[in-house]
Design a protein around this nucleic acid. Structure first.
Lengths: 143, 143
DNA sequence: CTTGTATTGAGACCTAGTCTCAACTCTGGT
DNA sequence: ACCAGAGTTGAGACTAGGTCTCAATACAAG
């Protein structure tokens, strides 16, 4: 997975530097979503000497390549989630942070209908679904 | 419209203080979305002596009452938009900032399908649509 | 192995928002 | 009309998340 990230960066025509390789490895090793601060903490814990700005710069690069997406959690925090480059949406577990991807199961019809009613010309949309993943449903049922 | 905001605050059991009345009037007078900073600037321009914290506190109150909703713009900025208390979604014009509301035209089917596929128990969702409003389409066609 | 350019880390800076606290102002009871 | 006390206020410190600048460094093409 770190390979894929690096390959994509290579594709994008940027240099494969030490810090980028290290951060890619850290991202690959994470499950679910993470914040920039999480990633920075990982790096600091390993004394990689990677700067704050570098972390944000890499996340921006990855986001440009659609390898990572920024999701806004219901509590207002921001998280990043590594994902497939194709268009899709995220299911976010509000208990454990697990992320699941869902593809466009019918939302285009919704946006088309909204466009028709409002006269807007819709360019993009963002759909985020929040709930409990199957595992957390078992742990804390019907909460 | 400022009346409605104040009535709702009254309903919520909070005091109708001077600053709240003034801010309600400022919000009522705005078109489309605005940021907390916009509102604060309005207040400062009129030398109302309203503090930063008060602005955020009122926005939070209004958000609790679903009279205002926070939308995350595609560029990562946050805006607030006054709206109907019922559940709905927003169409945001990326040129002029105009906001249009659309109700749940079929999205429940989408979330139900996503829940079925993923096993998640979906609690809430957020859908934001970005594009050009009818007016901006005329001004800068097919841009 | 050189060299030009991309990238880096540090730290200042910015925006959005929260928290604390002493001072103030509503509002209900009288 | 007045008072008391709880709710609210503004100022300013603080936090999180992110951007910018700049001199130093590392990559990679030749």
């Amino acid at each position: 997975m770190a390979r894929e990230l690096l390959a994509a960066l290579d594709q994008a025509g940027v240099r494969l530097t030490g810090p980028r390789r290290e951060l890619a490895a850290l991202i690959a090793r994470r499950k679910g979503h993470f914040t920039a601060a999480d990633l920075l903490a990982d790096a600091e814990q390993r004394s990689l000497g990677i700067g704050r700005a570098t972390v944000f710069r890499l996340l921006e690069l990855l986001a440009d390549q659609n390898l990572v997406e920024r999701v806004d959690l219901p509590d207002g925090r921001h998280a990043y989630v590594p994902c497939e480059p194709s268009h899709h949406h995220h299911l976010v577990c509000v208990s454990c942070g697990a992320i699941s991807e869902v593809d466009d199961c019918g939302i285009d019809a919704v946006t088309a209908e909204a466009a028709r009613r409002s006269g807007f010309e819709i360019q993009s949309h963002r759909l985020e679904l929040f709930g409990h993943c199957p595992r957390c449903q078992k742990v804390e049922p019907r909460q």
